[in-house]
Amino acid sequence: MSSIADNIGTVTRRIQKATLKAGRKPDSVHLLAVSKKRAADDLRTAFAAGQRAFGESYVQEALDKMETLADLDTIEWHFIGPIQSNKTRQIANAFDWVHSVDRLKIAQRLDEQRDSALPPLNVCLQVNINNESTKSGCSLDDLTDLADAIEEMPNLSLRGLMAIPDPDQPEAELRSSFRKLANALKKLRQEAPASGPLDTLSMGMSDDLEMAVEEGSTWVRVGTALFGPR
């Protein structure tokens, strides 16, 4: 059975190969280790192998890991799950990134509750790219208004967009979903104020990261290919 360190090496090479194939800069795509429901010792092992960014979906579980791994001072915490209003204060102050901001109320709470002594919280807007009834995310029609509102929030830094397309759809449709998100980011750059970098596309997972990279992803969210099946 492959070790976590071996798996990180394998996934990193997949990313590098896809990046090269797409004619992109070698350092333009980052690996986010999806570590929800994984033991803190697994994260420590991944950290020792060079992984720094970890994605969590459950607030209390993440806070427990943060306490256990507090000695790892260069670790970077990303919240990637649905956000409940009663958890925004903890998310706002414990995480470096939030990939799943999907409505104005949540953005406002994160901004108001982020400690002003901390750097602005990096946020991505989660887009329901295909208007699936079972998925969270703002619609493409509402994207510009939400982005404009966030640009006025001093404790948030709008970095880009995130989506979770249905991985079981045909390959052509999945690629179309990735491309649709990339085009939405391009449009947002043209329409939104220029105070934020808008440099981030969070899309692609273990089975489709190559396709996501070819379509412009800058963060691929990988769990199973790193840590094995749950």
Score class of each variant (00 low, 15 high):
residue 209 L to H: 05
residue 118 L to C: 13
residue 100 S to T: 04
residue 207 D to F: 10
residue 82 P to E: 14
residue 108 Q to A: 11
residue 174 L to G: 01
residue 203 M to N: 01
residue 124 C to F: 01
residue 165 P to Y: 07
residue 198 L to V: 08
residue 102 D to V: 05
residue 128 N to Q: 12
residue 137 G to H: 01
residue 90 Q to G: 11
residue 149 A to N: 06
residue 138 C to E: 04
residue 137 G to N: 01
residue 166 D to C: 01
residue 189 R to M: 04
residue 208 D to Q: 10
residue 121 L to W: 03
residue 109 R to F: 11
residue 73 D to K: 15
residue 186 K to C: 13
residue 133 S to E: 13
residue 95 F to L: 07
residue 147 A to C: 12
residue 143 L to T: 07
residue 213 V to C: 11
residue 89 R to G: 09
residue 97 W to P: 01
residue 103 R to H: 05
residue 115 D to H: 06
residue 120 P to V: 09
residue 83 I to N: 01
residue 78 H to F: 03
residue 74 T to K: 13
residue 213 V to W: 06
residue 183 N to S: 15
residue 137 G to W: 00
residue 92 A to P: 07
residue 190 Q to C: 08
residue 126 Q to D: 01
residue 209 L to W: 04
residue 96 D to E: 05
residue 130 N to V: 13
residue 160 G to S: 08
residue 197 P to T: 02
residue 91 I to W: 00
residue 80 I to H: 00
residue 197 P to E: 00
residue 110 L to Y: 06
residue 123 V to T: 03
residue 119 P to F: 03
residue 104 L to K: 10
residue 154 P to L: 12
residue 139 S to A: 11
residue 213 V to T: 13
residue 183 N to R: 15
residue 87 K to V: 11
residue 82 P to R: 15
residue 94 A to I: 00
residue 148 D to W: 11
residue 98 V to Y: 02
residue 111 D to W: 09
residue 84 Q to L: 08
residue 159 R to V: 02
residue 204 G to N: 03
residue 158 L to V: 06
residue 95 F to C: 12
residue 176 S to D: 12
residue 79 F to N: 01
residue 78 H to N: 12
residue 109 R to C: 09
residue 145 D to I: 14
residue 178 F to D: 02
residue 187 K to H: 13
residue 117 A to Q: 14
residue 209 L to S: 00
residue 213 V to D: 07
residue 200 T to N: 05
residue 130 N to D: 15
residue 88 T to L: 02
